[in-house]
Design a binder for these strands. Structure first.
Lengths: 124, 124
DNA sequence: CCTTCGTATCGACATTCATCTATGCATGAT
DNA sequence: ATCATGCATAGATGAATGTCGATACGAAGG
């Protein structure tokens, strides 16, 4: 088979056939990345874990600067990041602020992390 | 009860009793944060999803710069980040590099994201 | 051998981030 | 009303990040 029809396989010299799946839309990727960004810091990881381990997932932040070795404004900075991402709820009781972890906010990235191929929605 | 023993409740004016759980050790928090950092970018989220949707979780990167609208060095930069975090495996076949997603590398953060209180290991 | 082509690295640059000190704001106590 | 206190914000600063163009490396093919 030295001279087949020239129109038969004009694209066979590409490295990988198929696999040009539909890319995840930009907006969806942005949303997922925002949540991951909120988790992409050791201090915030420890804060979330601390809340999750506290009773009812709620704790006040009064002891945390000392425990973590950070200043009070830095703690406020991190809690704001977590709050903006929807990962914690803020509840001001008198002078103290209590924070509650919101595991529901993790649903999106949990689904993403199940990196199984989309079952019937395969593109190629 | 106006004059109880002074040693009875010297700490009762703190805002929140208990809840001073053991904090997640720094090293563990760092490891988790590193993985989250690798995921904390929309381009990398799309890349991972693309690989996961490809056959056997493997694809070559030849079409990706165009598809994502980024330059080839930028793609290389992101793939390096994913590789350093252990999220993808590199496999050079001839001149082309094929990448394979490694879902095992997500085990750590998946466990973390199940933010349930440690069952019997409660601290307080 | 020399060329070609896919990939990785380098240098530069703008942006974002984590952290601090200092200050403002609201709430509770005196 | 005044003071004290917990938290948030502002401004500054050094480090890390994402992007590019230019270049170097390495394998295939003439």
């Amino acid at each position: 088979m030295t001279s087949i029809e020239p129109t038969a396989a004009p694209e066979t010299d590409i490295c990988c056939a198929g696999a040009d799946c539909e890319l995840l839309p930009t907006v969806e990727a942005d949303v997922l990345a925002e949540t991951f960004k909120a988790l992409a810091d050791p201090t915030r990881v420890r804060l979330l874990r601390y809340l999750a381990e506290s009773d009812a997932g709620t704790a006040c932040a009064c002891h945390l600067p000392d425990a973590l070795g950070i200043s009070q404004p830095t703690l406020s900075f991190h809690m704001r990041k977590l709050h903006d991402a929807g990962l914690v709820a803020r509840d001001k009781r008198g002078r103290w602020v209590h924070w509650t972890v919101r595991p529901e906010a993790l649903a999106g990235i949990k689904t993403f992390l199940d990196l199984a191929p989309r079952s019937a929605d395969r593109c190629c």
